[in-house]
């Protein structure tokens, strides 16, 4: 029995403590916007914020989360209106879209720490997340667009 705070709501999980947070979020709690991509902290499709820091939920044991506040794509804004989400729509970033929750959460972590990142910083930080459709140029532009609004 593990207590969690996800998107500001207290939740309880029956999963063994070594279960990756990803699977608890997705399959037990039904927040499927966070994706499974590699299970090895290589692709970032599973990225969530833990205490505001972009983290790989696929390698985070649920038992290690403790009182930390977890934010998923569903909790970033009530209605998809976060500046990053609006920028993602304005730049028409997604293609298949599978990686984009993770990309947006990675970018949210970046802007929380560095509200006005330069292009090189964006490239560097966003390199933690893979996009096979090749939307990277639009991701750069969307992060820059959002950073002007945050």
């Amino acid at each position: 029995m593990t207590k969690l705070t996800i998107n500001g709501i207290e939740r309880v999980s029956d999963a063994p403590e070594d279960t990756p947070l990803l699977w608890v979020i997705r399959e037990e709690l039904g927040l499927t916007g966070t994706k499974f991509g590699c299970g090895a902290a290589q692709c970032g499709a599973c990225t969530v914020l833990i205490e505001g820091i972009a983290s790989f939920s696929c390698i985070t044991p649920v038992g290690s989360v403790g009182d930390s506040e977890v934010t998923t794509i569903e909790g970033l804004s009530p209605d998809g209106s976060h500046p990053l989400q609006r920028a993602w729509v304005a730049e028409q970033v997604p293609q298949c879209g599978y990686c984009q929750s993770g990309q947006i959460m990675r970018a949210a972590g970046l802007l929380a720490a560095t509200p006005q990142p330069d292009r090189e910083t964006i490239r560097s930080v966003m390199s933690a997340n893979l996009c096979r459709c090749g939307t990277y140029p639009r991701i750069f532009r969307a992060v820059e667009r959002a950073s002007r609004e945050v």
Binding site: R26, E27, G30, L31, T32, G33, T34, K35, F36, T72, I73, E74, L76, S77, D79, G80, Q85, W88, V89, Q92, V93, P94, G97, Y98, Q100, S101, I104
Partner: peptide
């Protein structure tokens, strides 16, 4: 004209096969 699928791909609501959940489902 923007793509119809973009909003659902920015707020986590787009449902891929891996996201489908059915009552009583096993893995």
């Amino acid at each position: 004209t923007p793509r119809r699928d973009v909003p659902g791909k920015t707020d986590g609501t787009e449902t891929f096969a891996i996201d489908v959940r059915v009552p009583g489902m096993l893995y």
